[in-house]
Amino acid sequence: MKGRRLKYLVAGGIVVAALVGMIYSGVKESVVYFYTPSELTQKKDSVEGKSLRVGGMVVDGSLKWDPQALLLTFQLTDGQGVVIVRHKGTAPDLFKEGAGAVVEGTWTRDGYFRSSNIMAKHSEEYKPPVHPETLESKKELFKSILKEGKP
């Protein structure tokens, strides 16, 4: 009985610690999960050097990729403010101009946001392509690749 009791006390302690940790960090972190570009431009001096997140839409035509330096540069906007973001490395597939994104990193003295992580944010809408690929069309494609009936 003693061993069983101890086992449950240890396990219970872990669960309670995990809960307290998640609630604490949850309240601290997820209440303001990311700042908008206009919020950041307002308070940039006070957050300089602190790690934080910025979320917005990628401005059309702002996305530039430098393959030599592996540097991705783009702008994020919420319709009012604009933040210039520089990111070393690649981005997720769904990260594109006109789409939503949340970046993690720090605001630098040089007037841009240094991103260490890019996350693509998508909408709650789901729709098929304009010309939906049906099972029939997949079979047709398969046939055309195999060139059935042709030598």
Binding site: S30, Y33, P92, N117, A120, H122
Partner: peptide, 11 residues
């Protein structure tokens, strides 16, 4: 494959 991360601490 969509967001680019397995996990993040959002609400």
């Amino acid at each position: 494959p969509t967001w680019g991360v397995w996990w993040t601490w959002d609400a």
